[in-house]
Amino acid sequence: MTEEPYRWLEAVANRREYVRDQLKGGSPALAASLSDGILLLGVGGGQSKVFELFDRHALAGLGHPADIEKIRQAAIDAAHTEAFTRAPEDVSLRRLVGFGLSPQLKTNFEQIFTAPFLVELLLVEIGAEVEKDLLLRLHFDGAFQFQSGGVMVAASLPEPETAAKEWLARALAQKTGRREAVDLLLQAWWCLTENKPFGEGIPGEADRQAGWRAATQGRVVEIGWLARKSPRPARYETLTLAQIGL
């Protein structure tokens, strides 16, 4: 009996290793809060990385498609039930994740006889002003971090993810256009997928741009846009590279 807690800890550590191994090589997802709205970006097979959740909410992520789908569906169910029984204004990312998705992910991760979710996710909520934009990073074990505005990255490994986020935050400062923001997000995406450094030795801009263009050939660049101002309640739309001049 005395060794049971140790076994549980070991099992959880093994699961963490297993999940990280399964997520290795997953295509990163990125989000940036701009003056006119929030951009989400992923590169995948189409309708597989970036999704609308509710009027002011969207999700992007990497991982097993079936697990992303389960999380997406659970979030959509919860948001619409909340909106119908209370009001659309009451749907909030903090409650959706804090009281819904996060506990479920944690439970699945720690119950060692159930399959863990193989996901790394970004969730965003558009606010009336940039300062009220909410970007949330949700991990496979249920841990999450909030941030007001700025940039958020979901990658399979923590260190490159942090480096990409810091580089993007600097590169995107003072930039408000969607075109240049998407270009920078794709440059960061390419550096992440090619394991390029973000500090000393980062490839030049021309190489980064040529890199993402070559790497996205035959794949779908999924771009989601949550508009800050819209005559309709639903703020989300999908964009193509051509639509934003890339």
């Binding site: 999704f51 609308e52 509710f54 009027d55 959509i76 169910d77 619409h80 909106a83």
Partner: peptide, 15 residues
């Protein structure tokens, strides 16, 4: 209200 929520729910969940 039911229709508004139902149509949007279907569109978002079924893509």
């Amino acid at each position: 209200r039911v229709l508004q929520t139902s149509f949007e729910y279907y569109r978002r969940s079924q893509l």
